[in-house]
């Protein structure tokens, strides 16, 4: 039991469930406001984006800190992003559109922000379904190439957010900046920067 509780995976798993727990608690207490469906849509969308950002932070954090072990938590973060993306998608299909397939198809074709959001969701499916160890082994080098799709997914998610707001772009631009920084840190100069910072940190210590 003690060993289980000391496993950070358990804690990360529990923390990742908190946004859902909050929605359920607010739903039960009438705290979702005048437009609950909008609230749920916004919330699950936001947490999908946060999940993507956390997943993308693992590699730069590893380079910065030198804790190679961090990689062990990346899959769970990625899968939770997919989990919230699924909730977001189901909210749209079920609560928002109530399975009006014709309207949904029209939306996907005609509304650029939905086209982009839907594409991002579809692109997450192969990533989630190839997240097992067996698939990693089977795909070998190609696994890594395939999973670089998350860069595109994160950018599409930000564009989806940018295009849906009426006027105030502040919040999507902040998320966008974070995603751009996390992607830039993967470029050669970004990697060198991380290594230099780590070396500098070690020297100071």
């Amino acid at each position: 039991m003690g060993a289980v509780l000391r496993n950070p995976k358990l804690w990360i798993f529990a923390i990742c469930l908190l946004p859902l727990a909050r929605l359920i608690a607010l739903g039960g207490s009438g705290g979702l406001g005048a437009n609950p469906i909008e609230f749920i849509t916004r919330s699950t969308g936001t947490w999908t984006l946060v999940g993507l950002i956390l997943t993308l932070s693992v590699t730069p954090l590893r380079r910065l800190s030198g804790y190679a072990n961090l990689i062990r938590y990346r899959r769970m973060l990625g899968l939770f992003s997919f989990f919230y993306a699924c909730l977001h998608f189901v909210t749209y299909i079920w609560l928002d559109q109530f399975f009006d397939l014709a309207a949904i198809a029209r939306d996907i074709v005609k509304r650029p922000f939905i086209t982009v959001g839907f594409s991002a969701f579809v692109l997450l499916i192969p990533l989630a379904s190839t997240s097992t160890h067996a698939m990693m082994r089977r795909l070998g080098r190609r696994w890594q190439h395939l999973h670089r799709l998350i860069y595109l997914v994160a950018l599409l998610a930000v564009v989806h957010y940018l295009w849906l707001v009426k006027k105030d772009l502040t919040s999507p631009l902040i998320y966008g900046a974070v995603v751009v920084i996390l992607l830039a840190l993967r470029l050669p100069w970004g990697v060198r920067l991380m290594q230099a910072l780590r070396g500098w940190g070690a020297a100071v210590r």
């Binding site: 005048a34 437009n35 469906i37 909008e38 609560l95 559109q97 109530f98 309207a103 029209r106 939306d107 005609k110 509304r111 650029p112 922000f113 295009w163 849906l164």
Partner: peptide, 16 residues
């Protein structure tokens, strides 16, 4: 230009 105006959600109702 970015969304349909054919339907609306009346606040307090589930179906559009």
């Amino acid at each position: 230009p970015r969304w349909s105006q054919a339907k609306e959600r009346r606040i307090g109702e589930f179906f559009k």
